[in-house]
């Protein structure tokens, strides 16, 4: 008590309290924001029938009984197996909550067989982009540097040069690519999910797609030659670090110099 009483007029106390309050509010927000809804799963039969059953139960309310689309969801005719696989496997569909756009969620509702069944059903309605084969996704011999050029020409405008994602209009965004698998990259390019335009095999041949996959994989695994990479978000992150850490350290040193020794 005496200790506190003697020091409560110290100007540092106000700063300390402020910091504490900030940390408390931030921590509280993080705790609330990270709460995720838990989901359950079901089982399977022959693929298309099973897919239809699953579709009618889980998708038709928005996409329509005949997958023709409603006011709440676009038509699925012609989107192909690749689109279904991409949307459902990444947890973007079924939609968790209405919002600017569907976000990828770590826990999917459907297991792999069920997703395959759904994809088979939707693909059976109208032809569309199929899922990639293992050969499509093999980018071992791809030209990484050419992939970089293609990435900067076609992808960096939305996903940012380092693949960290970027903002679009009205709260929509191009997601971060750091956890994207080559399969997801391929599916996204051929199907154009949500806001993303389609990069067809005719204008961006499979060879070029593989080069892009190789480059993005390179970005994902890249080391940072210059030290801590600050999220590779560019000058804003650098500026923030400058003021909060570097400049703060220099001010700290100046204060230390100014304090009389005991």
């Amino acid at each position: 008590m005496k200790f506190l009483a003697a020091r409560r007029r110290n100007p540092l106390v106000a700063i300390g309290l402020l910091l504490f309050a900030l940390v408390a509010v931030g921590g509280g927000y993080a705790a609330i924001a990270s709460v995720q809804p838990a989901q359950a799963s079901a089982s399977s039969q022959t693929q298309v029938d099973e897919g239809k059953r699953l579709y009618l139960a889980g998708c038709s309310s928005c996409h329509g009984m005949e997958a023709q689309g409603t006011a709440n969801g676009p038509t699925l005719l012609g989107v192909g197996a690749a689109a279904v696989d991409f949307q459902v496997a990444s947890g973007r569909m079924p939609l968790a909550a209405p919002g600017a756009q569907a976000a990828a969620r770590p826990t999917g509702i459907y297991n792999d067989d069920q997703i395959a069944a759904l994809a088979a059903f939707v693909a059976s309605l109208a032809p569309g982009p199929a899922n990639p084969t293992a050969e499509d996704l093999n980018f071992e011999n791809a030209d990484v540097a050419q992939g970089g050029v293609l990435f900067r020409t076609n992808c960096a405008q939305c996903h940012q040069a380092a693949g960290q994602g970027g903002a679009l209009t009205q709260g929509k965004y191009a997601p971060n690519l750091m956890a994207a698998t080559p399969r997801e990259m391929y599916q996204a390019m051929v199907t154009g999910p949500q806001s993303m335009p389609v990069f067809s095999d005719a204008t961006l041949p499979i060879k070029d797609k593989q080069a892009i996959m190789a480059y993005v994989t390179e970005l994902q695994n890249a080391s940072s030659p210059g030290g801590l990479d600050l999220g590779r978000l560019g000058p804003v992150a650098e500026g923030l670090f400058l003021w909060t850490a570097v400049f703060a350290a220099l001010i700290g040193a100046a204060v230390w110099i100014g304090i009389k020794a005991r």
């Binding site: 940012q160 191009a174 804003v236």
Partner: peptide
């Protein structure tokens, strides 16, 4: 960021602070 060409751009293009 790659070499400059006038028809490429990166999202989040910012100047220094």
């Amino acid at each position: 960021f790659g070499p400059y060409t006038p028809d490429q751009v990166s999202a989040g293009s910012q100047p220094d602070w």
